[in-house]
Every structure is written in C-alpha cells, then in structure tokens.
C-alpha cells in the first residue's frame, strides 16, 4: 500500500496562476510539484501545488506569489 504523508496543497483560480507558482518555486528552490488537485479540496483550477507540509510557511510567504484559491493540509 502506498505510504501517505502530510502535504500542503495550494490551489489556484487559473492555470496561469499555477504556472506562475511553479516558476516562482523553482527559481527560489522551494519544494513541491504540480499535481491534480485532490478531490478532498474545492479547487478552482484543476492543478495544485503539492509539497511536504513543513514547507507551508515558506510557500505562503513567498514574495510575488499568485493569488491562492485555497491552502490545505492533507494526508496524501
């Protein structure tokens, strides 16, 4: 069985915003990847930024980030 871990899941209003987040995180060396938004969250955009939950403070405070639709912590 696949092992689950606590993840921070950030959702966006547009695909463009998700792309902006990926660009920003890559440039700043922040962890995570783009993935389909889990069904447990209400997502405006089908794409979410998923990272270990420990990265949440850094991700939420990164300057220049696009507007988030929601920020969640889930066992994924």
């Amino acid at each position: 069985m696949r092992e689950k871990s606590l993840q921070v899941v950030i959702t966006f209003h547009t695909t463009s915003a998700a792309m902006a987040m990926e660009r920003l995180c890559r440039a700043r060396g922040l962890p995570g990847r783009l993935a389909p938004a889990p069904r447990d969250v209400t997502s405006d955009c089908g794409i979410a930024w998923c990272a270990p939950a420990s990265a949440r403070p850094d991700l939420e405070s990164v300057p220049g980030a696009p507007e988030f639709a929601g920020v969640y912590e889930l066992l994924l």
Binding site: E22, P36, G46
Partner: peptide
C-alpha cells in the same frame, strides 16, 4: 488535465505571457 503533455503546453503558454507582458509594458502576465 495535469499530465506532462498538458503541463508542457501550460508552461510554454505562460512563458509567452511573461514575454509579451514585458515586451508590451503590461503589468502582469495574467
């Protein structure tokens, strides 16, 4: 969807937005 093909397209299109915004003086790529 969120597969490598769709993400490749999204990245290419977002990069084009960024370049156009800079080139034409638009404040935000979005």
């Amino acid at each position: 969807g969120v597969n490598e093909g769709s993400l490749s397209a999204a990245r290419v299109i977002y990069a084009a937005r960024e370049k156009l915004a800079e080139f034409l003086g638009c404040p935000e790529p979005d």
